[in-house]
Design a protein around this nucleic acid. Structure first.
Length: 343
DNA sequence: AAACCGTGGCC
DNA sequence: TGGCCAAGGTT
């Protein structure tokens, strides 16, 4: 590959991946973090006064979920549950209910479980090291490194989808990173890290932000990129991706059915009888005047979401399978009076 | 380790 | 319009 004349020379090949060395790397750090200082979005979890708990909550909520949808929910959560102990004092169903429509509601379940573990094993304080954080439910390699770095100022190599894409383009000259994180990628990320802890935190945040707002997956805003002259992908003429990402199926899947069931449970103020849940009347879209189901217990439920499934003719078999899965996952419970969020 | 797990905005 | 995509984790 010919990186072209404005590209940092590939001077280190110990990992098989070209990496800039000393002065060039320092320059990269400076330019990206300087850009970040001006361009960073002001987000509440980036405020210096934000608690580690606030940062942990934000990281979990941001998993596979855009900032704009997380913001209002995060604000409500932090007001309602300012510490892990506050969340831990409530049933897990409360976490699922207030998760709203963020998606992947078992993140709410795991965050609640993490709060329990933090209270039980860490005296109510968020663990400060990557290894300790990794033991918490719902906290994987990315989140553990991110919390250690952003909440505690530690020098951790943070690798998320944004950072992977920036590295793939800037250093690798390809449009997209590999389908799954490779060891070569991880080594490159480690090699690119500033030695200084404080700078490393800003570098992690800055590269992530660069990927989120400039070096985006679909239509990157290369004109506004602070390191366009160093980009191997641009130098190579912005070649197309070498593979076709496999899409996420949705219509007709169990995921859709599970989502609809949880939506009904979330909006219901009482347990919903299993029979009612499985045979709700058809009301195609979730739009229009909010219809209401009267529950035998005297409460109400909004059947819209589930009705959509009947409109799609989801087989009863699938409804049953989805519900069984939700019960097994702890996202729902069956009581004498019906199905409800966990207590 | 490939598959599964929600949701909504965007081009 | 609909497929793509988003600060991943778990099994």
């Amino acid at each position: 590959m010919n990186p072209g004349s404005g590209t940092p020379a590939a001077t280190v090949r110990t990992t098989g991946v070209p990496e800039p060395s000393g002065p060039l790397l320092d320059d990269l750090h400076t330019r990206v973090t300087d850009w970040f200082e001006d361009a960073a979005r002001e987000l509440p979890w980036r405020d210096p006064t934000c608690s580690p708990w606030g940062i942990l909550v934000s990281e979990i909520m941001l998993q596979q979920t855009p900032v704009v949808r997380v913001l209002p929910v995060w604000l409500e959560w932090l007001q309602r549950w300012p510490t892990p102990a506050h969340l831990a004092s409530e049933p897990s169903g409360a976490a699922v209910r207030h998760w709203g429509r963020l998606g992947y509601p078992r993140r709410a379940l795991r965050l609640h479980a993490a709060a329990l573990a933090i209270v039980a094993d860490h005296d109510g304080e968020i663990p400060t090291t990557r290894d300790e954080l990794l033991t918490l439910p719902g906290v994987g390699a990315y989140t553990a490194a991110a919390v250690a770095a952003f909440a505690f100022g530690r020098r951790e190599t943070v690798v998320d989808t944004n950072i992977r894409r920036v590295h793939a383009r800037l250093m690798g000259g390809s449009a997209l990173p590999a389908p799954a994180l490779t060891s070569a990628e991880m080594k490159r990320a480690v090699a690119l890290m500033p030695g200084d802890a404080d700078l490393s935190v800003r570098w992690n945040a800055a590269v992530m932000e660069l990927g989120a707002v400039i070096c985006t997956a679909r239509a990157p805003k290369c004109d506004a990129c602070p390191v366009i002259d160093a980009c191997a992908w641009v130098a190579a003429g912005r070649p197309a991706p070498g593979y076709i990402p496999k899409g996420q199926s949705w219509a007709g899947t169990d995921r859709q059915v599970r989502g609809a069931i949880v939506a009904v449970l979330r909006d219901a103020d009482h347990a919903v009888p299993r029979s009612l849940l499985m045979e709700a009347p058809v009301d195609l879209s979730m739009q229009g005047p909010p219809t209401t189901l009267s529950l035998p217990s005297g409460g109400t439920a909004r059947p819209g979401a589930l009705s959509t499934l009947h409109g799609l003719q989801a087989p009863t078999e699938q409804l049953e399978r989805a519900l069984t899965g939700l019960l097994a996952d702890g996202l729902a419970e069956e009581h004498d009076d019906g199905i409800r969020l966990p207590t």
